[in-house]
Design a protein around this nucleic acid. Structure first.
Lengths: 196, 196
DNA sequence: CCTACCGATCGGTAGG
DNA sequence: CCTACCGATCGGTAGG
């Protein structure tokens, strides 16, 4: 029996979505033309519309796919029988892995969502706020349980999310530091600080 | 002798620049049309060109003005007779104040710089890298002086810069927390962590 | 999947 | 500072 060929299990739509993520990330949503996208896919611009409905639809697909992945991860974390500090640490590590492994898509969801049309814009912001709220609750619970110092939980969550998001810039600099070292240094910094 | 009127010491160009910063921040550089900008200034689009050279020039002015302010601040900090940890703390507080007081312009310099034309793009990235390098040196010196824990100094600098930049999102949420509390909580988190 | 082409909108200029 | 208008480019459609 021959081995089943799984290498090219991507539909044309998948390819378009992936190329769109790369272009939206590097040039921005508005600055990316459908002609550029078509060229990067290897067809003429009108041919794209045999696989997709519109440019806006591509942005929506990317943003909601990423939001869904984060929500799913928080769902799973919340049910674990571990301390709040450990939950936050898990989330930070997951977020870092997402940044490193799905750079283009996470970047687009983080920066280009503002070009979503209504009502998706409102819906997306609602999902993001929900993620933030659930993290805030973890911090609050951790403060109550004396795991964390007293601090404003919203400030802490925003600081953590933004700090990890900073790995965007890393991709450009590309210092050759092993990813594991980056991850551990960031987790230590965000949980325990850098001052001796 | 009448009191000299200083209230409206802004040139039309200043007004245009300020409105441009607000629009570029909220809608993005490419998504902002000169017609929108004109309307927000209160003239017809072609009239803008009596005061400015091009749309690209507006973006340049904003980006390099911000870069200049940060470079100037680091110049002053480097010469102070204080510890490296204190220098980093000063920079963090300065950065926070910039985020809170010059939100639109800092945001544009942080996010829309990628739409700069060459050779300004290269020049801007050079200035930014220079700022990062000088902060890295402060962290390195602090590690050598046993003020900071051993950690990758590039990771630490990127984490700090990105974390403070996260105040962008704050503006949207607008929880009513006094700015002083935000500032102190962030400084403590970035220097000493949140775990007890 | 292509060629041909659309209406809309863009940044910017001419001329006064 | 305006009206009138330009060439270029955009997202997307028609028709095959």
């Amino acid at each position: 029996m021959a081995k089943i060929q799984t290498t090219k299990n991507f539909t044309k739509k998948d390819v378009i979505l992936q190329k769109a993520a790369t272009l939206f990330r590097s040039r921005g949503y508005n600055a990316t033309s459908m002609r550029e996208l078509a060229e990067s896919v290897g067809v003429e611009a009108p041919s794209l519309y045999n696989h997709i409905g519109s440019k806006a639809e591509l942005l929506q697909a990317i943003c909601f796919k990423m939001a869904g992945i984060f929500i799913e991860h928080i769902d799973s974390i919340e049910q674990l029988p571990i301390s709040n500090a450990q939950k936050i640490e898990r989330f930070i590590r997951f977020h870092i892995h997402m940044m490193l492994d799905n750079f283009d898509e996470v970047f687009v969801a983080n920066h280009e969502w503002k070009h979503l049309d209504e009502p998706m814009l409102t819906q997306f912001l609602g999902q993001r706020r929900s993620i933030e709220k659930r993290l805030v609750t973890m911090i609050e619970n951790g403060i109550d349980a004396k795991e964390f110092k007293k601090t404003n939980p919203y400030v802490a969550v925003l600081l953590i999310l933004s700090a990890v998001r900073g790995l965007e810039f890393w991709q450009r600099n590309k210092k050759n530091i092993p990813p594991g070292e980056i991850e551990n240094d960031m987790v230590n910094h965000l949980l325990n600080g850098i001052v001796k």
